[in-house]
């Protein structure tokens, strides 16, 4: 995962670069929490451009990060989501809670 922080906009972009499953979520979670807690961003974007696979482990992980981000007064969204992954987000009702595009 790559992290980029824009100080002026208080914008944190977290680009996930691996497949998201139970095995990889632990590492993604640790790194994301570190960056979110460090900057307390106004806006956090998870960039899914490089994500080719995600199962329900990703849902649990993203909801956990959403809780942290909102607790710190920020917003969160997911961008560049592929159709096969969008299908999982929709099935889990994620677009009703978190902005997904």
């Amino acid at each position: 995962m790559n992290a980029t922080y824009n100080k002026e906009d208080k914008l944190l972009i977290l680009e996930i670069t691996e497949e998201i499953d139970h095995h990889t979520t632990e590492k993604i979670r640790r790194k994301a929490d570190y960056e979110i807690e460090r900057f307390s961003p106004k806006r956090t974007i998870f960039d899914f451009n490089k994500v080719t696979f995600m199962d329900s482990a990703g849902i649990g992980m993203l909801i956990g990060r959403y809780k942290l981000v909102t607790m710190l007064g920020g917003t969160m969204e997911m961008v560049h989501v592929k159709p096969s992954i969008m299908k999982i987000f929709e099935m889990c009702g994620i677009p009703k809670i978190i902005k997904v595009g």
Binding site: S56, A57, I59, G60, I63, G64, I88, M91, C92
Partner: peptide, 14 residues
């Protein structure tokens, strides 16, 4: 506690 979503069986089924 492990941030599981509880959606595994639902996904398999659908």
């Amino acid at each position: 506690d492990l941030e599981r979503s509880g959606m595994g069986f639902t996904i398999m089924e659908s």
